[in-house]
């Protein structure tokens, strides 16, 4: 590369040289660019294109401009789903991340026997496909024959009603914590492993205890990992779909067709044939998620740099 450009620099006018080098660079990223174009850019552009039309059962297809977007913005169902995932995010994400952090710190404390065993056990739920996880939990939540039924029988009252309107969000949160705690734990744990040992030695010499070490060295040391995990969790919450969609089959009265924005988009297109409107919902969702993830990132990084 170097020799080639040197040679060219000697013989060719500047502009031409630059053009040719640019072209070569594109060739190198072409495999990525093609896949990126086909799998990411084209679907998004197509979704935007779709969202500008309205295809009716009676009257056929027509261009409606931004009407679908205006409808989404004033759609109570869309906002109720959005509001639900926002509540979910604000409560479930901190609980999950704190549990993950505690688990990672415990594994890193060197006070546990069989660290490898605990690590793999905590991580294992993540290896279970989300669909299977939701089915397993759906079965356990059953108040007729599931685990919930056994507990209720034991207590002699119907105290556990996980699949009812009132408790369903908690039940889903529980599944998501179970699924993703191990994953986040692993992110934290690997970040803890790369904190330089000198810091611990220095802290020990200064007489810092375990708590002091945790709050002054370990947690600040993995701040970057925490920001990343938070971002993933925020995006995951907004995309909540598998768990409510599967539980809906068991409890249609507790999970509506617009329970989360993603479920709403799915049901609009597959039950209602409203592909255009669903595309608009998906795009509005995507934009909101991107903005929130960006804010989390900027805030997190700023604190890190402070």
């Amino acid at each position: 590369m170097t020799t080639m450009s040197v040679r060219r620099r000697a013989g060719t006018p500047g502009t031409l040289r630059r053009d040719r080098r640019d072209w070569k660079g594109w060739a190198f990223i072409a495999p990525f660019a093609l896949v990126f174009l086909a799998m990411t850019v084209v679907p998004i552009v197509y979704a935007i294109y779709l969202s500008l039309f309205r295809d009716q059962l009676v009257g056929g297809n027509s261009f409606v401009g931004l009407q679908n977007y205006l409808d989404v913005l004033s759609d109570a169902k869309f906002w109720s789903g959005m509001w639900r995932v926002a509540i979910f995010l604000v409560i479930q994400v901190p609980i999950m991340l704190i549990l993950s952090l505690i688990a990672a710190l415990a594994l890193d404390s060197l006070r546990l026997y069989a660290v490898g065993f605990y690590r793999i056990m905590l991580f294992l739920p993540y290896a279970v496909p989300g669909v299977v996880a939701a089915l397993i939990w759906g079965f356990m939540y059953g108040t007729q024959f599931g685990l919930a039924a056994n507990i209720n029988d034991f207590l002699g009252s119907q105290v556990l009603q996980p699949l009812t309107l009132r408790w369903i969000l908690v039940s889903i949160g529980n599944i998501v914590v179970w699924e993703f705690m191990g994953y986040n734990m692993l992110i934290f744990y690997s970040a803890l492993k790369v904190i330089p040992a000198e810091l611990y030695e220095a802290a020990e010499i200064d007489g810092a205890g375990s708590w002091r070490t945790i709050f002054s060295i370990k947690i600040p040391g993995i701040r970057g990992a925490i920001v990343i995990a938070t971002m993933f969790s925020v995006i995951g919450s907004f995309q909540l779909f598998n768990e409510p969609q599967l539980l809906q089959g068991l409890a249609p009265n507790a999970v509506s067709t617009y329970f989360t924005p993603n479920m709403y988009a799915y049901n609009l297109s597959f039950a209602g044939q409203q592909f255009n409107y669903a595309a608009a919902v998906a795009i509005v969702m995507g934009v909101i998620t991107a903005v929130i993830a960006y804010v989390v990132q900027v805030r997190g990084t700023r604190q890190e740099n402070r």
Partner: peptide, 21 residues
Amino acid sequence: LPYQQYANSVYSDAMSASYSN
């Protein structure tokens, strides 16, 4: 209805409160 399938798919959305409560 000429779109009964859709109507059925959103039935629980409307009725869940009555049955739940």
